[in-house]
Amino acid sequence: MELLSFMAAPLVATLLMGGILVYFGIHVIKREIVFIDIALAQIAALGGTFAIVLFPHDHEGHSHEGGDFITEYLFALLFTTLAAGLFSILKNKKVKIPLEALIGISYAVATTAMVIILDKGAGSDVHIHDMLTGAILWVSWDQILRLAIIVSVVALIHVLLRKQMIRLTDNYVANEKTIKRKRLLDFLFYFSFGLVIVEAVQIGGILTVFALLIIPASTTLLFFSNWRARILAGLLLIVLLTIPALALSWTWDVPASPVLIFFLGITLLISGLVYQLKKR
């Protein structure tokens, strides 16, 4: 019973993140911009760090609530918006290099800029580590409520615009010109994605978010081509793997997200083998 009450919140959080991330995962794999979420997460973190430097508060209290938190969040949002604008501009026929290269460069610049800023302060080691793994086991119901609200808003936008969004992504690499208000739509895509990332990374850490984004979407790609089937199959996969991963991390006393990532990886490996055997 103790285990059950302990697992409820992380499980709900993972499912909420997983559902929306599988959907975005299909988009980013098709667009061949796999590492975009790491870049967006890092840029959002840079925004948060900027806020701390511009409006220093005493670190004694360690409370992440109230005014400080709101300023940090607004800055993270501002930086994400700027990045969304930048990425939608950078996708241009005149640019002869893959967008992924520019995404990688933004990621590197955002991370090292943060190192430069934090060098003046202290505790950069801890910060980097926390951002990678997160603490999904300690997620609070307040955080889940916020996550749920953001996920529903973003999901609603994408349900309403599903035809345009899917068409945009299907033609992304070919860079078709005929789509109406393409740039605005693209901006909306990156912005809504950024909103989800900012929220999800705070809960699950960069690595978990990345794994939930890429691995289920890749695995289901082997067996389904239809968007709805892939999202549902991906979600089912996440449910089936999250429960044993959380239980194991509880009994062995290890962090939950590496275990979940490991499970997801193994599932992909087995699916790949099954797919190869079926093909013969």
């Binding site: 690595l207 691995i215 962090p255």
Partner: peptide, 17 residues
């Protein structure tokens, strides 16, 4: 690139463990 991402993710996850 998706494979690369997954290899990276698994490598880092195991390293963290």
């Amino acid at each position: 690139e998706a494979y690369i991402g997954i290899i990276y993710c698994l490598g880092l996850g195991l390293a963290l463990l």
